[in-house]
Amino acid sequence: MNNSDKGKLGEDSATKYLVEKGYEIVTRNFRIRSAEIDIIARSGDTIIFVEVKARSNIRHGLPIEAVTLRKQKKIIEAASIFLQDDNYADCACRFDVIEIYLEGGRVEEIRHIENAFEILQEG
């Protein structure tokens, strides 16, 4: 199983997990020129932007540690473009990270981190 397969598996299981928890999936793999949001979900009036990180071992750090400041900025950029759609203008929003731990090609554990990051104040 190569890395992109792992990513695909992770995103699929994260989507399943969110649906089971009662979230409505708005879109997957929302793409702008320079960035991508893995899953955009909705719960009530809140739009949730989800970044999925799958790992088969933690030798190179925890999955959430891979969501660096640079990556956060890209997600925030993409999110602000998504929010320009009039349908979502009045929504609250949130940035979540879902960690997928893989073991021998199977999903071992899913950890959902709500409010994983937010917009940083300049200066």
Binding site: D45, I76, A79, S80, L83, D90, C91, A92, C93, R94, F95, N115, E118, I119, L120, Q121
Partner: peptide, 8 residues
Amino acid sequence: NGMPAFDI
């Protein structure tokens, strides 16, 4: 509502 942020 809006992008989550905390500014002082």
